[in-house]
Design a protein around this nucleic acid. Structure first.
Lengths: 149, 149
DNA sequence: ATAACTGCAAAAACTTTGCATGCAA
DNA sequence: TTGCATGCAAAGTTTTTGCAGTTAT
């Protein structure tokens, strides 16, 4: 955890940005809630619990910065909000998501299932793939059980 | 074209909605610009050219309705706007997109490349896939040429 | 008549910006 | 000191909502 924070700090410095207390608090919230898919507002409220003086604009600016540095990915599941998802360590590509249309839960798939598909796209469409976004919409495990009862 | 309009009209009627002139004008714009990925505002401006009395709210309401009926898919490429994409006839699933990070162009892939991946997701994650969103980010054919020169 | 639909304007929701101030190298 | 970073409030965007009036059945 501290380890990842250090790495992010170095990445910031490399691009001549500083890890200010506000930025650190924001990153910590992201690390502590890695499983969730927090909106800017969510992050703001969580940061505020520990650092009440922080402003929403700073959170937005920090998240933008982290997106630029590819520390997080900005995603959109179709509700009007952007959500921010930490990149896993060493992940070359963005992970996939399973969004349940019943309960709204979001599960992550770390495994990269798209290698074959990307090869096809590169060859057949002459498109150099740099990254991807893949989300499945469907019924999650839990809701399947509920449906049966 | 008229054919597809008729089908959409029937779909509306089936759910006891009417194909009002405003809705028809909106659908026509979508049909005439099938290759593009229009935002609500884009659609509004195009509809306005032929039916100047229409209101933006009506366009939003129509697009929402069409989304509900799965006539169109609402997508978001990361700029702050929702875009609306007509479903191809008979397409079981939403098609894929290739977004160029250089020039911003968007190409469509009609072919469904995810059959294998979906089978894996259903089996390994116990998730019943109903639909998907797949977008590749990378360099398009044209920008590759430009880069070389 | 009645229920659905519309346009307009207002409101809401989300995000960005301007600016005076603060802080660190 | 110089330039980046912050908080606040204001402004900007995009989308939704309330409502009175209209239309089709």
């Amino acid at each position: 955890m501290e380890n990842r924070l250090e790495k992010i700090k170095k990445m910031l410095h490399t691009s001549s940005y500083k890890l200010t207390p506000q930025r650190e608090a924001t990153v910590r919230v992201l690390l502590e809630n890695e499983e969730d898919h927090l909106s800017a507002e969510d992050v703001y409220l969580l940061v505020k619990e520990k650092s009440p003086e922080i402003g929403l604009a700073t959170v937005y600016r920090t998240l933008e910065l982290l997106t630029e540095l590819k520390v997080v990915d900005k995603i959109n599941f179709g509700d009007g909000v952007s959500r921010y998802d930490l990149r896993k360590e060493g992940a070359a590509h963005f992970h996939h998501h399973l969004v349940c249309i019943e309960c709204g839960s979001v599960e992550e798939i770390q495994e990269d299932l798209l290698d074959d598909v990307e090869a096809i796209v590169e060859e057949k469409w002459n498109f150099i793939v740099k990254d991807h976004r893949l989300t499945f919409h469907g019924i999650c495990k839990n809701c399947q059980k509920k449906g049966k009862s």
